[in-house]
Every structure is written in C-alpha cells, then in structure tokens.
C-alpha cells in the first residue's frame, strides 16, 4: 500500500443482480502516481472506476479520498447528501471510452460548462481557462466547432480538457483509446503521458500495454472481479508471477 495515499479504496464489492463484478477489491494510489489497470473485458476494471466517482454504487466497502472517508453503504442507503457526492465528483476527473461530449455545445462551451455552472466561475474566466486547456491539448483552433466535426482522437482530447477544467485531484481514464481508429490512439496517449509527467494522479483502465509499461508507475491485473497481481509496471508486465497474468499477457502480446 502507498504511504499517504491520495485515494484508497477498501474491500469494495459490487454486484449487478447475481453477477458479482467486484469481489473485495482494495487499492491505493499516491499523489502523482499513475496506476494502470489491465485485464480481460468483463473483469470489472471499468466498474471499479465507475464506483470511484459513484456512477455505480458498491454494495459494501469504503474509500478515502484526500483524507475524507466515504462509506459506500451510506451512499447506497441515501445517508450522504447528493451535494456532497456532487462536490466529490468535481474533484475526480473522468474520461470515458465514448468521449460523451455534449453535442449541442461548441468545443469551448464543453470545456467551460462545468466550471461556470458547477463551480460558479465567471464566464470570462472559465472561457479563458478553457482556451488555455484547448491550447494544451492542441485544439485551440477548434474552439467554436461542434464536437461532431472533430475526429475521435480530437474529441477525446476535448473530453480530457473538459475534465481538467475542473482542476481535479485525480483523473480516471476508462479505456479512453478503445473506441479510436488505430492511427488516432497515439495523440491521446501522448497527451496522457504529458499529464503524467506533469504529476497528475491517474488511474488508467487500458488495453494499451505500451502505456502501462512505459508511463504508469504501477500496473494492476484484474481477473474475475479482483486484483490478481499488482506491482511496478515493469515487473507485472515483464515477469508476472500470477499464472492468470501470464496467460493474459501471452494472449494480448503474442497475437499476430
């Protein structure tokens, strides 16, 4: 376990009906750490991310985020005020596989929307900040375009800028390159590498083994709802101890 973790999740269980997706998952991530989560589809990786910002509510377990404890049982029983959950979400950035940009708003409005209407920033400040972020993700010239006119890679970079606009303490990436054409994957991964180098705390569910190995400090292998192996990325990916990890990596890395 990490010392002084930014985020710690303990004994999380989540089922959908009789299907137990997360079985007693515990994990912690330090400030500035990049942690990759790999594993087969349906192993529960995405569900874990969705539990952290409470898009899904686990049946049991708790998390500690920047010293604040959130008991998932309290959340599921409605004992925690919605306002508190919303406030928590403003500090946890989330990027989705399918971008989920808002199609009725321009690129700039997508980025400035939440700072204005959630954080209450003056429109001009939010727009200035959005311009800077769009510059950072290399899309300043697209500010007035509708999202639908952008390529997948560009849309995903806007989605990252939108999450960054909230100045979150941690960013969750949920298979953010899986919906992209192969030639567009690089631009998104480059941006994520840049964020990692700037010291952003990142939890990355990914199928990009190169990213896991070269960018993330640690990698966790998810298997059937629990973490089968976790450790420094180089160790987990090059010399996995767990036979399931080895089998998975064989399948992923040695295909034609």
């Amino acid at each position: 376990m990490t010392e002084n973790p930014e985020l710690e999740i303990n004994q999380v269980r989540k089922s959908f009906g009789s299907n137990e997706v997360l079985k007693d998952v515990s994990l912690s991530i330090g400030k500035g750490e990049v942690l990759s989560i790999i594993g087969a589809s349906g192993s529960g990786k995405s569900t874990l991310l969705r539990c952290i910002n409470l898009l899904e509510i686990p049946q049991s377990g708790h998390m500690v985020f920047k010293g604040e404890t959130i008991d998932f049982v309290d959340v599921s029983k409605g004992r925690i005020k919605q306002a508190k959950i919303n406030r928590l979400r403003t500090r946890i950035g989330m990027v989705f596989q399918s971008f989920n940009l808002w199609p009725h708003l321009s690129v700039l409005e997508n980025v400035a929307q939440a700072p204005v209407h959630v954080l209450g920033k003056p429109v001009q400040d939010a727009n200035e900040q959005a311009e800077i972020l769009l510059g950072k993700v290399g899309l300043a010239d697209k500010r007035n375009e509708p999202p639908s006119s952008l390529s997948g890679g560009q849309q995903q970079r806007v989605a990252i800028a939108r999450a960054l606009a909230m100045q979150p303490d941690i960013m969750l990436f949920d298979e953010v390159t899986s919906a992209l054409d192969p030639e567009l994957v690089g631009e998104v991964l480059d941006l994520m590498r840049q964020l990692a180098e700037e010291g952003m705390t990142m939890l990355v569910v990914t199928h990009e083994m190169g990213f896991a190995r070269h960018v993330s400090h640690r990698t966790a292998f998810f298997h059937q709802g629990h973490i089968a192996e976790i450790g420094p990325s180089e160790d987990v990916l090059s010399s996995p101890e767990n036979p399931e990890t080895r089998q998975f990596l064989d399948r992923v890395l040695n295909h034609i």
């Binding site: 910002n53 898009l55 919605q82 306002a83 919303n86 406030r87 928590l88 979400r89 403003t90 946890i92 950035g93 989330m94 989705f96 399918s98 971008f99 989920n100 940009l101 808002w102 199609p103 009725h104 929307q113 939440a114 209407h117 959630v118 989605a159 939108r162 999450a163 909230m166």
Partner: peptide
C-alpha cells in the same frame, strides 16, 4: 446514457444537468 454520466461526472446536480445538458438536446 453517456450524456447523463458525463454531466454527473463533473459534479452537476439534477437541475443543472437537465437545464444545461439534457433538455437542450
């Protein structure tokens, strides 16, 4: 579904999400 989720994920309350993201669409 992704539209609702991305609105919630940035911390929007029900009213803001409806007013800014969902109803305009």
């Amino acid at each position: 579904k992704g539209q609702w989720e991305s609105a919630r994920a940035v911390g929007m309350d029900q009213y803001t999400m409806m007013r800014r993201i969902i109803l305009p669409q």
